[in-house]
Nucleic acid binder design. Structure first.
Lengths: 227, 227
DNA sequence: TAAATTTTTTAGACAAAACTAAAAAATACT
DNA sequence: AGTATTTTTTAGTTTTGTCTAAAAAATTTA
């Protein structure tokens, strides 16, 4: 047994899938994924990453030139988008059907995304009503890897007086999401900036036309608004 | 990373879990699990099984005396029942919520049973309405490992004239289940024996007070009836 | 641009879980 | 009981994915 997914559908091992997804996410932010960044993300050592990069390059999953970063090939991108699709669909399932809170879903979805059954994902997608966004506001690719992009900017860059909606969060750590729960910020919440405090960059935010809250610039950086 | 389930809930690797479940199922039928039987069930070689038995005995999961078969300890039984519980709950989910047919669920459930999250299973159980039996009629243990036992006998041992219900099937291979679909046998179907053919041991069976079908003794052996 | 620092790779080991081939124990058969 | 057969275990490899330590390349800094 290569790994525990004995169906013949999947071409990659569990570890390979983890690397592919990590590289995808890093490339979303910075063009090329560096060895150290991958190691950090996977809680592994740079030496281990080097080994795996060689292996994945042999398999035509990524473009690799020694000492330069890596990017995904079309093949690799397809695999990554499928993993992202599975991860986000499972997150929707956990929140919508099993009453998980948005700060509880990530770890479980990290496991569920490796389940290898195209039929399962097809049926799950239908069962959930073909959702376009996950509980953190991130888009869910369809089976072809296509996804909806809603224009959005960080909360901190919104102009005073303009009203928008919270569309997504960038930090999906439990501690950040629990903080958002506490102050009442959620995906879809109506927000506008009342004032920007020069001293520390914090923001006075009107929430759902009701209460006014103060958020730090660190928090504001991780909230995206639009519409 | 030991395996890909990074939560701290689970004590066993994926491979160990496979062995524990295989040993559980073998012991259901024959008291002690023999090395060769385990190898057959896991599509592995007896030498590999010997290695693993030693390891699992060290971990106090099973009682092992060289050249004798093995049995699960209380610890091992607890782990096995939890795996069985997870497997069968996922099977119910696939059939009830995702419209899988009962011949399509086993392989996917074999993967899903390894997902390591007590919260997930608790919530899934509630979402499904705390089912007591899986799509093949097998009982689902609760979180303490307890399960309902309905008295049942093989179809072949039912007396002529007596009416019963199909409670479970013993063979859950796709080919067997697809055959049952074809002839119209399902869990809950009303059955009675009209006649037993001496020549080959086959049975004339009245199904749902409607049609009459003929089933071989091999088929009859794998269908359990009761109530 | 040369030295210092950081990043990445190589070399060599290790653990888990599988395998083959051969030895040892248990069981079955005259 | 003694031989033959089957079952199980041991011994020695292999593969995957990890690690540490050291070497090499790239980048930053003076």
């Amino acid at each position: 047994m290569k790994d525990h997914r004995v169906t013949t559908e999947n071409q990659y091992t569990l570890a390979e899938e983890d690397y592919i997804k990590a590289i995808y996410h890093i490339c979303q932010q910075s063009q090329e994924a560096q060895t150290n960044d991958i190691a950090d993300r996977l809680h592994t050592k740079p030496a281990s990453v080097s080994d795996m990069l060689k292996k994945l390059a042999d398999k035509k999953v990524l473009n690799y030139i020694k000492y330069r970063g890596v990017t995904l090939t079309e093949e690799g991108m397809k695999a990554a988008l499928n993993l992202v699709r599975k991860h986000r669909l499972w997150e929707v399932f956990l929140v919508e059907k099993l009453n998980f809170s948005w700060d509880e879903v990530h770890e479980v979805a990290e496991q569920l995304e490796h389940i290898d059954s195209a039929l399962l994902i097809e049926r799950l997608d239908a069962f959930l009503g073909f959702p376009k966004f996950d509980p953190h506001g991130d888009p869910i690719p369809n089976e072809k890897g296509e996804f909806v992009v809603k224009p959005h900017i960080p909360l901190g860059e919104m102009e005073i007086g303009v009203t928008g909606k919270v569309l997504a969060v960038q930090d999906i750590s439990a501690s950040f999401l629990q903080y958002l729960n506490k102050v009442g910020i959620y995906i879809g919440a109506k927000v506008s900036i009342l004032d920007k405090i020069d001293y520390d960059g914090s923001l006075e935010v009107k929430l759902d036309e009701q209460k006014t809250i103060l958020v730090s610039k660190e928090v504001a950086k991780n909230i995206f608004v639009g519409e």
